[in-house]
Write a protein that binds this DNA or RNA. Structure first.
Lengths: 209, 209
DNA sequence: ATAGAAATGTGACAATAGTCACCGTGCAAC
DNA sequence: GTTGCACGGTGACTATTGTCACATTTCTAT
C-alpha cells in the first residue's frame, strides 16, 4: 500500500505529493524510546501503524501516562516544541511496534502557511491533546485512585483495541504513579465486583466495567 | 497610550494596522466570567491589563486553577476551540479588572497564513500553555498538598506581582480542589516555619518560602 | 457598643493511599 | 522434575487528606 494512501481524504493532493518527496518513513520496536524529556525535537512523527505512548517523568523518575498517539495522528507537543527548537517536555515510547512518517521542521513550518488542510490538521491535533491533558488533570484532581484505575484500563483497552490488557500490576502502578500493592488491591476489588478477570500478566475487561 | 503600542515589538506594522481596524477593546470587572465551560468561543482575548484566571470545573462544581493570562498574553485553548467552533473546556474569570482586545475568529484564521509574527505568537502561546498544564499535572501526580500549596502561593504572587495575597483560606481551598480545614492547617505550619505571615483574608509571603 | 456574619483554629475521627514484610503461586530454564 | 524468579496476595502499620463539630477571633453594620 502506498504510504500516503491513508491520508488522501485528509490532505490535498499537492500536500500528499510533498509527503512523498520529503517524508522519511521510520519504524521502532515496542519499548523503544522515540523521544525523551530534555532532548531536542528534530522531527515530528505522524503514526502510520502501532501506537506511541506519551508520558511525563518527574525528577525522581516516577512516570505518569498522559495519552496515546494512534495511526493517522500526531503529537501536538512536538509541533510547538519543534517549531521553536525547544527541548521536549514529554517522553514518547513505542507502545507497540510502530511505523511513522518523520516530518522535518522546515516543512512543518512552511506547510502551515501554504496548505489549509495541514493547518487544520495541526489545530485539530493541538485541540485534541489539550483535551487529553485536561482529562488527565480531571482524573488527578477530582477522582480517587479506583476511578482513575478504571479510566486507565478503558483507555488502554481503546489504545490496543482489545479487552485483554497484557500488563503486570507493577507496570500499571508505574504508569499511574502509584504503587503495586495498592493497584493489586483495587484490581482484586474490581474482580470481586465482576468488572474484570485477573490472570498472570493479563487482565480481561468485562462488559460491565 | 495607543492600544497597539505594547505590541509594536512583537508584530509587524501591517498586522498592527489590522489590529487598529478589526479589534474591539473590551473590559471586565474583577470576578466577571469572560468565558464558561461549554459556551462557544466567539472571540479570542489578548490581555492588555489585569489578569485572567483559567480554571477547570468538574461536574460537581469543584474548581481547579490551571493558570493565569497576563498582559500581552493570550489563552491557547481559545485559539484551537475558536478556529474549529468548539465549545470551551475551561472557565476564564477576571482575576483583577481586565482590559483586552477581542479578536474575531475570521481574522485569527487569516492572519495565521499571512503574518509570520502572528503564527509565531500563536505557537509560542500554545507551547507556553501546554507547559503550564504539564506543571499542573506534575503537581497533582507527584507532589503532596503542602508542596502544591507553596507552588500555588508563589504562582499567585507572580500573577499579582505582590507578596501579599488577598484571599481567604476557603478561596484557596476551592481553587486547589481541597478543603478549608486542611489548607488552614498547612498554612499554619508554613507560618510556624517562618515562611509566611497570616492575617484575616491576607497572606504575606516571606523571602524564604 | 453590640449583634451577627465571616474567617480561622482545632480536636477527633474516617477514608484513602503508601509502605514494609513476608508468603505462596505459577512459569521458565535447566 | 526442581530451582529460581517474577508476579501477585495479604496483614499490619503509617502518612496524608478529608470531614464533622464546635470554639474563637475579627470585621461590619446598626
Amino acid at each position: 500500500m502506498n504510504i500516503t494512501e491513508q491520508f488522501k481524504h485528509i490532505f490535498e493532493p499537492e500536500l500528499l505529493k510533498e509527503f512523498e518527496e520529503k517524508l522519511k518513513p521510520m519504524s521502532a520496536k515496542e519499548g523503544d524510546i522515540i523521544l525523551d524529556i530534555g532532548r531536542s525535537v528534530r522531527v515530528i512523527p505522524i503514526v502510520l501503524s502501532g501506537t506511541l505512548k506519551i508520558s511525563r517523568i518527574d525528577d525522581e523518575g516516577r512516570e505518569l501516562l498522559l495519552y496515546y498517539v494512534s495511526p493517522v495522528e500526531s503529537c501536538a507537543m512536538t509541533f510547538t516544541c519543534c517549531m521553536q527548537q525547544f527541548p521536549s517536555e514529554v517522553k514518547a515510547t513505542a507502545e507497540k511496534d510502530v511505523e511513522f512518517l518523520a516530518i522535518p521542521i522546515s516543512a512543518m513550518d512552511e506547510w502551515m502557511m501554504k496548505y489549509p488542510t495541514w493547518k487544520s490538521f495541526v489545530m485539530k491535533t493541538i485541540r485534541a491533546r489539550f483535551n487529553e491533558l485536561l482529562k488527565s488533570i480531571d482524573q488527578l484532581a477530582f477522582q480517587k485512585l479506583d476511578e482513575r484505575l478504571i479510566y486507565y484500563l478503558k483507555e488502554k483497552s481503546k489504545a490496543t483495541s482489545s479487552s485483554l490488557i497484557n500488563l503486570s500490576h507493577e507496570q500499571i502502578a508505574n504508569e499511574m504513579a502509584s504503587s503495586r500493592e495498592v493497584i493489586s488491591r483495587l484490581l482484586k476489588r474490581l474482580e470481586n465486583d465482576k468488572k474484570i478477570l485477573l490472570y498472570r500478566n493479563q487482565i480481561k475487561l468485562l462488559k460491565d466495567l
